[in-house]
């Protein structure tokens, strides 16, 4: 007969608990290093002027004040183009961009991962090669092309060029590669068309790749300043990120700049918190038994 070794089980549980403590301690220490800049940002946003210009600069705030945020609202209230317009622009651009990007990337990665067609290998190696290129060196030719197409000074210039995102395509394809082919073959035998296979199988199974791509690209497009500066000359079409970056200029506005930085960061953090649960759950049930 079996006899359950109660002592052994107790010990095993204890060991497990110890392991958890070690994990927590390590993560707390390492996390503290990652968190420092954010704490610094929060502190700076609440610093009164005399602390902002201390030398050497202090890390923590001593006499917190919300004066910086008051300054910020005063500045936004007096801007030439209403603040809400910038906000509207940024939200519109971000939503359109993320939607198009996720849609395009899943659609492109599906045949790249699950089909054989001529030119596929060449295309893939072009994509990976161009990942290694430094964008600034091709900046001027890119500028020439974008202006000659004529999408400069429209909302499109924020969205279309940035859709050619090679890194995220690469990522998406890698994720799709791990989805077993059997699922698609089963779908094919059941008579699904290619479009149905893509819509009913590939897209749901790629949910956590999509969440990853959203997290990776959101910060960039939300805080977008470069395109606003280079391609847009109508103030009404510029983004919130551009507007916020103009606030920080000048010594008198340093505090307001820090406050704006804090406010610009919040949506990214929220988007991350929403999406990270998708990263965590979806893929768990995709396996074939």
């Amino acid at each position: 007969m079996f006899q359950v070794d109660v002592d052994y089980l107790k010990k095993a549980k204890k060991r497990k608990d110890h392991g958890k403590v070690v994990i927590l301690v390590f993560l707390t220490l390492a996390g503290a290093v990652s968190l420092l800049p954010l704490i610094y940002l929060v502190c700076t946003a609440f610093k009164p002027p005399e602390e902002l210009f201390l030398y050497p600069p202090t890390f923590f705030v001593k006499n917190p004040t919300i004066q910086n945020f008051k300054d910020l609202t005063a500045i936004t209230a007096n801007s030439a183009v209403p603040f809400t317009r910038y906000l509207f622009n940024t939200i519109l651009i971000t939503v359109c961009y993320i939607f198009c990007l996720v849609w395009l990337l899943t659609m492109t990665s599906y045949p790249l991962s699950k089909h054989k067609f001529p030119g596929k290998k060449g295309l893939m190696s072009l994509v990976t090669t161009s990942m290694m290129f430094i964008a600034s060196a091709a900046g001027i030719p890119a500028y020439l092309i974008i202006t000659s197409i004529g999408i400069d000074n429209t909302y499109l210039v924020y969205i279309i060029p940035a859709l050619a995102n090679t890194t995220c395509l690469f990522l998406m394809k890698q994720f799709l590669d791990t989805v077993p082919n059997d699922i698609f073959e089963a779908g094919k035998i059941d008579g699904a068309s290619e479009w149905q296979l893509y819509q009913k199988i590939a897209i749901p199974l790629l949910k956590n790749a999509q969440a990853t791509v959203i997290i990776l690209t959101f910060g960039g497009i939300w805080g977008e300043t470069g395109t606003s500066t280079t391609y847009i000359y109508k103030e009404q079409l510029r983004t919130l990120g551009f507007f916020m970056s103009t606030i920080g200029g000048g010594i008198a506005r340093t505090g307001a700049g820090a406050a704006s930085g804090l406010i610009m960061t919040l949506p990214s953090i929220i988007i991350f918190i929403i999406n990270q649960s998708r990263v965590q759950d979806t893929m768990a049930h995709s396996g074939i038994k």
Partner: peptide
């Protein structure tokens, strides 16, 4: 957080 911060602030 580094990625979020890097993009924006």
């Amino acid at each position: 957080i580094p990625v979020i911060l890097a993009g924006v602030i």
